[in-house]
Write a protein that binds this DNA or RNA. Sequence first.
DNA 1: CCGCTCGTGGGTGTATACAATTCTGTAGAA
DNA 2: TTCTACAGAATTGTATACACCCACGAGCGG
Lengths: 246, 246
Amino acid sequence: MSRDNITAMTTGRKGKGRDSRRDEEIYRAMSEAIVEHRLSPGDRLPEDALAEAFDVSRTGIRKVLQRLALERLVTIQANRGASVARPSPGEARDVFEARRLVECALMGSAADNMTEEDLSELRQLVRDEREAQADGDQRNAIQLSAAFHTRLARVARNEPMSEFVGQLALRSSLVIAVYGSTDSVGCDCGDHGEVLDLLEAGEKERARTWMESHLRHIEKSLRFEGSSEGTPDFKAIFGRRGAGEG
Amino acid sequence: MSRDNITAMTTGRKGKGRDSRRDEEIYRAMSEAIVEHRLSPGDRLPEDALAEAFDVSRTGIRKVLQRLALERLVTIQANRGASVARPSPGEARDVFEARRLVECALMGSAADNMTEEDLSELRQLVRDEREAQADGDQRNAIQLSAAFHTRLARVARNEPMSEFVGQLALRSSLVIAVYGSTDSVGCDCGDHGEVLDLLEAGEKERARTWMESHLRHIEKSLRFEGSSEGTPDFKAIFGRRGAGEG
DNA sequence: CCGCTCGTGGGTGTATACAATTCTGTAGAA
DNA sequence: TTCTACAGAATTGTATACACCCACGAGCGG
């Protein structure tokens, strides 16, 4: 969809911010851009430029950046500003380990609480994701994959858990942006539809093991070579020249 | 990583805020006040008053309030300001269900990764908590109980998970503030030291079941009667005609 | 006497101004 | 030529000012 159109609509008049949901809009736009890899890890996020881009003052931008920082999608260094987070290999490992623990643990109550509406929405997401992959639209595919996991977690009807999974899924997109090979997203690690079949059939244990191996498969496809932690590795930065993103 | 010490060191000065970590300071002070029930659920948190209390401008206060809101410790209503969150019964259930899922799942790697230092710090927390309970210092006891669970989660060496547990523990303190009977904290639900013994002995499964029953016990001690969400139900408040209690 | 409308005040939402800090580029000296 | 020191620019951190919104209360009409 067109984030810019939405922005334009709500900004109809450039007057004062009567619209208190503008922050949320900006947050969504930025996190989506990060998840879809239109913003790459390490990219600087100057407040002024963002403020001008969204036609708000730095105040609003700062609020969003702080939130993104709490969610570990951006990194804020004191007096040096914000940039898109670049997860370390350790962070990457933690994120996927957490996902294995949490998402697998949720399969039970997901099977118990699955409704027709859940199922239909999830199957739609699977179709969209397949289509995106078929079209080679990696950006959409990544975003939809994360959306699937997040939506699936919501079936368990536990808000703290589903929110946590949502954050982990977002962070995973960052991890894949840094360490992922081109097909890390889900091409070769099976289809998300499979787990829906298992859940629909009430096969909780098999759903759990499916999710476990699914996440393990993604994690194993990551390539950690040559990225030292903490210090920005100029090797990767110089190598980034030619490729916008893949 | 050892910036906490720096924060503590710089705490002495109350002069002008050239300390850019003042936000963190304020955050800790406020969350601690909430956890220790010095601030009660529903209490208003006007920005001006807080700004004066901490001797900063509203800007800094707003930043902290937004963070606390993201962590569900305070509720921010548009144009109506912030107040200490008042978890609904549903939220309370979700929080404890999430804790059961997550904290139990962490027992395995906690047992694997437990070090001498972990153990000694945890045992110290247990001693402090016992002492607080013996002294009838409920505030400290609550805070220390939450600290124990948070510290224990850190043993699993997974930052996203331990952060999540930390947030859930904080929210639990709020839940107890609203629905807890006086002894909900931990008087009668066993001693935290027990799980340390189990973990030290490598009894993963027993540690898991201990944690499960521990959390279930706390949850069962909650009293949900008479506090409906949002609107206080005046039927229950004034309708003492039919109610046995009077 | 009760209900409705309008005015006022407390408090939040946003923008802007100013101070502090970091980074960059240049000039000078060994 | 190279390293260091300093100055300027750019960007963030913080405070303040002003506009807006909602709640409460007074005044008016039914």
